[in-house]
Design a protein around this nucleic acid. Structure first.
Length: 137
DNA sequence: GCCAACGTTGGC
DNA sequence: GCCAACGTTGGC
């Protein structure tokens, strides 16, 4: 099983909105970046992900799970763009802020630190465990 | 609100 | 196929 990180601006699509969708989940649509799309194409049902709020909050707030593999993005006619569906699993007990991640040297190689602009990113198993621990899970 | 970093587009 | 111009993202 693989681990990922999904990034969203609070004003566009927030963790609360994701939670409100329940087990039905929602498309992770609107991605218009090839790298991010390619990662979504690699995702399998059951893969786990972090939900990160960019811009204002800048923190990982919860865990999500992939519930549908890549399919055409319903928000565009452009067939280049695919997306997966994800559902909220549970929130972190304490959100892990970008500052906390940057302060942890074992997380210095996270894509979130290295390439902050990429909206869908892979996370290693080691990073996953550590961030979960930092988040109180 | 600014600006650096990055990705995409399009002219040549 | 190169590269300048432009647009967008996201940390600060």
């Amino acid at each position: 099983m693989a681990y990922w990180l999904f990034k969203s601006e609070t004003s566009t699509w927030s963790w609360d909105q994701q939670v409100a969708k329940g087990d039905a989940g929602e498309e992770w649509d609107g991605v218009r970046n090839y790298q991010a799309r390619n990662f979504m194409r690699e995702m399998k049902i059951g893969d786990q992900g972090f939900f990160y709020h960019s811009q204002k909050d800048r923190e990982i707030v919860g865990l999500v799970e992939v519930i549908a593999e890549a399919h055409p993005d319903s928000t565009t006619e452009d067939e280049r763009w695919d997306c997966v569906d994800i559902k909220a699993v549970k929130p972190l007990k304490t959100p892990v802020h970008l500052d906390d991640i940057k302060a942890e040297e074992r997380l210095a190689e996270m894509v979130l630190v290295k390439n902050s602009r990429l909206s869908v990113q892979p996370v290693t198993a080691q990073e996953w465990k550590l961030v979960c621990k930092m988040g109180g899970l």
